[in-house]
């Protein structure tokens, strides 16, 4: 113990307060465990790299009007298909003379929009189905899990295609289609967590205090499912971004002239052999963001979910 305590002498007080072994209140314990998680996360340089890229993405999306050198929608047919490093157009222009850099910057907003919407819909739906199935049990469990299995057995992209075909093309419908195919794994995880929790002593204690099933599920089971869900969502985000870009590429997601990255690749595809940068640059952007999510997810898994370290 003394070994651990000695370096605290020359540390600022807030650090020793955060690193204490004997928290004085519930909030103190919470903040301290967050801080210690952050310390171990910070040691993972790859995960930090992912986090930095994503923070940059958010900043770019927020400040897009300030950062973009041109209007992403204004066409300039005299200056079409200009190569990289042209005056005023660092990343060149596309087939309608629009500045590619500006379109990429505004495209960050669309990517974030999709990511946030899916991250709000799919895991919440999965959490709800999974915890109810796990806690209630019996035939409710059987029916809910059978439905989950059916969706799980589906080919995801093809199902999303069929949904979009029926609902009509567009970002919102793409988000719905992706969410409809993405929720089953979350339900599985949430159910597994619930099954391990539901018979534990503290649940019995809460029950004795008179809590009903609704309160038990929302206040005592959900919080414990969150961390494994967060890890899974982060790791899935890469796949979601790729699926959204794929739908955009097929002309089923965001519609032109929207600067969605997948749709931009599709537009540039016709000129790929002569004007390679038009299609390749948006692809690099997609790659960078989904790589960042994969790295961040790996790092978060190490911190939040140490039982499954993936090695």
């Amino acid at each position: 113990m003394s070994l651990l305590n000695t370096p605290q002498g020359n540390q600022p007080r807030w650090r020793s307060w955060l690193l204490t072994d004997t928290p004085t209140s519930r909030n103190h314990a919470r903040v301290a465990s967050l801080y210690q998680g952050w310390l171990s996360f910070r040691g993972n340089s790859m995960a930090m790299f992912g986090l930095i890229i994503l923070v940059l993405l958010v900043l770019i999306a927020i400040f897009a009007p300030l950062l973009a050198p041109h209007d992403p929608f204004v066409q300039d047919l005299a200056n079409r298909l200009k190569p990289l490093a042209t005056d005023g157009h660092i990343l060149g222009t596309d087939s309608l003379g629009r500045d590619i850099l500006s379109r990429l910057i505004y495209g960050a907003r669309i990517t974030l929009y999709i990511v946030i919407l899916v991250a709000l819909i799919a895991p919440v739906a999965g959490l709800f189905v999974g915890t109810v199935a796990g806690y209630v049990g019996g035939w409710v469990d059987t029916i809910l899990m059978r439905i989950t299995d059916i969706f799980l057995a589906f080919p995801r992209l093809v199902l999303a295609l069929a949904f979009v075909a029926a609902l009509g093309a567009g970002i919102e419908n793409a988000v719905i289609a992706i969410s409809l195919t993405a929720w089953p794994p979350y339900a599985r995880i949430a159910r597994a967590e619930t099954l391990t929790i539901r018979n534990s002593d503290y649940i019995s204690a809460v029950k004795l205090q008179g809590a009903g099933p609704f309160r038990i599920i929302t206040r005592h089971i959900w919080p414990l499912c969150i961390s494994s869900l967060i890890v899974r969502v982060t790791l899935d985000m890469a796949g979601i971004i790729l699926a959204a870009a794929g739908l955009g590429f097929l002309g089923l997601g965001a519609q032109p002239p929207s600067p969605e990255w997948g749709a931009m690749i599709s537009e540039g595809r016709k000129f790929i052999l002569d004007y390679w940068w038009v299609a390749t640059l948006p692809g690099l952007a997609i790659f960078l963001v989904s790589l960042a999510f994969n790295l961040l997810g790996d790092g978060l898994r190490d911190v939040l979910d140490p039982k499954d370290d993936g090695s």
């Binding site: 870009a245 590429f249 390749t280 692809g283 790589l291 994969n294």
Partner: peptide, 18 residues
């Protein structure tokens, strides 16, 4: 594996063709 999980397949196909 990491690159494989992160790369849009249609984009890699285009670059491969190019």
């Amino acid at each position: 594996a990491l690159i494989g999980y992160s790369m849009p397949i249609f984009w890699l196909g285009l670059v491969g063709l190019l």
